[in-house]
Nucleic acid binder design. Structure first.
Lengths: 333, 333
DNA sequence: TCCGCAATTGCAAGCGCTTACTGCTTTTTT
DNA sequence: AAAAAAGCAGTAAGCGCTTGCAATTGCGGA
């Protein structure tokens, strides 16, 4: 990168004003007389001047950039959340630096530290674990954080979610009312807050409430083939209804059932707890807990803008309504 | 953002050296004696000093940040490319600012200008149109650009693709040899370079080479429901084999065929030209032109690192090998 | 016409870091 | 052992912009 061709100084000289005045014009400061403003704007247009955001960032200590932490880039769940975030970010003129954690969990601190070093004004965090080290870094730099589609035990971090316990209970209830009594739950990482403190307790409570002794909790089932391979176990265990966190995993189970010549929903009902486009294009289509992912992202980003501007927010833990969308993987009543 | 707590100046004072020396230590400059380096590093660790990347960027005119232009966030095609990009970016310690164009095409210039104002060191461009205005902005700021998974008529922009013409021809050939003579092609925007100058010409040439007079080119078919609704037309037109750009669109057609009680591949063969996970989880699974998306992203990013460092690159137009992956939407021979 | 106050504008000190240059030490060369 | 080269570290001038404060201007009222 060579030296910038036209700077605020050039504009100031051409418009016969000081840099300060040009700066005021750029930033829409009202303390500029109309004629002056117009003269400066004319020069800006003539020279095609574009402010250097890095210099602005250094001087103003605001970068109009937010960080986005996402577990995987190729997961539509996060992509749909991101879209909501992106739209609102664009609206408020923030750029997004995206960082994926993928499976390299050990690198998480570094990735986030690098984001913080870039002086992002705020962070939207979608990863499902928030290590102490990271939490401290956020607090130390005073960077506001909003969790989107995930939760944390520390209540201090704002979050936008649905009521996972209620949703799961409702889903289990649906299958139970369909006559399925041998219900199971399939999750990925059992230690995330969403799973450990929400989904699994909801499942256990449901069993207790219905006097079912035998619990079927399958953990570390993360992807399509994990799901595909799980079915033989489900069959062996006599499971007749299952709630699956990730829809791709659910599709794995679904295909495995079909390939085994069994029937869905007769032999097995499936409900997925996080539905993306994939859940709706497979046949039979999956009954889903439909989370308003786009809205969740949008609300999270909007909340972040408020936090970044020290505006009032009423309640930092937002729960949006979900919908239990009955499709072909459960019985039609 | 309040004033930074610990700066390079604090480290210098504590370590009893000048800022310049601390800077050298941070940047791995070898002109520092071992003991001095260690002393400085000790102070850095003790104070938990983290360099301010914005200040570094202003002073060095390098931000170690690249821009990523993607048409849609919720399209797995770009997500898989992005993953390859992200991995290499992490390796070379670049951050990624992502900007989606979505459908708001009129905003494209602004979005990219904002990226350029942030002084990104380079750009990976995945959108399928590169307006003059944008191209000029890149050239003016001297920002290297690499197109990934897309092409441009201006040969000056580096690109990483597959041989679309060859791939499509091979796909058409496969169906032709299966006895399908009424072949069609389904694309989204017919004016993108990939479609206008590659896919459609390849299709036309194929027809000409096989003395087929009647051409079936369906354009502006962009998503699942467009695909779903298209089938009645395909049927009316007697199409018995179709190559579909986007796999989600292909799945729309697929489901429509099934719902109509027809058989795939007997009544209609389908090959999709850009396969993501979706193509492989639907049943019948789609025969696909398998693009090495991850690798394409990785190669594009690696090339960009070279361009950003003014290193030699041999050939700025890279074509990676693809694979014609036969699944259930074409006959098994 | 002159004064006071508000509206404008300019001044200049940073923001936190990099990087020629310069100069002082060591080391190497002969 | 003296001179040349190399190794280290410091000085200070920016990078391009924002912003508190001071200075100037313009305007209405007395």
């Amino acid at each position: 990168m060579h030296k910038q061709e036209v700077t605020i100084y050039d504009v100031a000289r051409e418009a016969k004003v000081s840099m300060a005045t040009v700066s005021r014009v750029i930033n829409g400061n009202s303390n500029v007389r109309k004629e002056t403003r117009e003269r400066v704007e004319a020069v800006i247009n003539r020279l095609h001047y574009q402010p250097n955001a890095v210099a602005q960032g250094l001087a103003s200590k605001k970068t109009t950039t937010v960080g986005l932490i996402v577990p995987e880039l190729t997961n539509l769940y996060f992509a749909e959340l991101s879209k909501g975030i992106d739209d609102i970010a664009l609206l408020y003129k923030y750029n997004i630096i995206i960082s994926s954690i993928e499976n390299r969990l050990m690198k998480e601190d570094e990735v986030i530290q690098s984001l913080l070093n870039k002086q992002v004004d705020g962070v939207i965090y979608m990863s499902n674990r928030l290590p102490d080290k990271v939490a401290n870094a956020f607090k130390q730099t005073n960077t506001p954080v909003v969790l989107a589609g995930t939760k944390d035990n520390r209540d201090e971090f704002a979050s936008v979610t649905i009521d996972y316990q209620k949703a799961d209970t409702e889903a289990l209830n649906l299958m139970y009312n369909d006559g399925k009594k041998n219900l199971a739950i399939v999750v990925g990482d059992p230690d995330t807050v969403v799973n450990k403190d929400n989904r699994i307790p909801a499942y256990r409570k449901f069993l207790a409430d219905h006097d079912i002794a035998e619990e079927h909790i399958y953990t570390k089932i993360n992807n399509y083939s994990d799901g595909y391979n799980l079915y033989s176990q489900l069959e062996k265990d006599g499971v007749d209804g299952v709630i699956v966190t990730r829809d791709v995993t659910a599709v794995g189970i679904l295909n495995s059932v079909m390939d085994a010549g069994k029937n869905i929903p007769k032999d097995l009902e499936i409900i997925t707890a996080s539905a993306t486009q994939i859940a709706s294009v497979v046949r039979p289509a999956l009954t889903t807990i439909k989370q308003p992912l786009y809205d969740m992202g949008a609300v999270a980003m909007r909340m972040l803008t408020k936090l970044m501007n020290n505006e009032e927010v009423d309640g930092i833990h937002v729960q949006l309504p979900y919908e239990l969308l009955k499709k072909q993987s459960t019985l039609n009543q």
